[in-house]
Design a protein around this nucleic acid. Structure first.
Lengths: 92, 92
DNA sequence: GCATGGTTGCGCAACAATGCACTATAGTGA
DNA sequence: TCACTATAGTGCATTGTTGCGCAACCATGC
């Protein structure tokens, strides 16, 4: 769960849910040093959420756990419910 | 997700999945200062994962999002897969 | 050797967790 | 009404953890 607790890593997972990517493809999408991005990816690899397959000089990342996407659904549900609750509170 | 990134909060959610609890019931289960526990619970309330219903002097906590339990299932799957992978690595 | 793709060591700043002391509120009973 | 207790939340200081960039490094292929 800790590995999914950062917006950056969530965005990486989201991106990988649309297909495999190499670091070099991810780098333009993230406005940060490549070392930082590398560490975020490493965090996801460490816990087994993504895997890597080398193709020559590049390493392609693959989302290893499709059920993560259900987690996103649940999260969105929580966010929507909370937004509704806040709106109700604001109305009084 | 951040709210679920702490072992303590995961344990709280797990406990609430078995029924509503008040802080005073949770306190004996957690070897920490009550203020710390209170803050963990507050974090879960803030994001709408748990709700509170007051009964006199006590506040009963309720798990607001059953889909969180699916998240646990997914997580366990990842953990099992990772354990298997590690075992395979160890065998060589 | 050299370019490309990716990782690691290090130090700093920001953030999160914790315990202690204190406060706030609801209920209880003289 | 006024203490008194039980339950829960806050302010603050300390400590531990995380995210980050920089620079150096490792690995692959030409």
């Amino acid at each position: 769960m800790k590995a999914l607790s950062s917006p950056v890593r969530l965005k990486i997972v989201d991106e990988l849910s649309r297909g495999d990517r190499c670091m070099c493809e991810l780098q333009p999408m993230f406005p940060m040093n490549k070392s930082t991005l590398s560490r975020h990816v490493a965090a996801l690899k460490n816990v087994g959420i993504v895997s890597e397959r080398r193709e020559g000089v590049r390493g392609y990342l693959k989302l290893q756990t499709p059920c993560i996407l259900n987690v996103f659904d649940c999260t969105m549900g929580v966010i929507r419910a909370e937004a509704k609750r806040q709106a109700k509170l604001a109305r009084g």
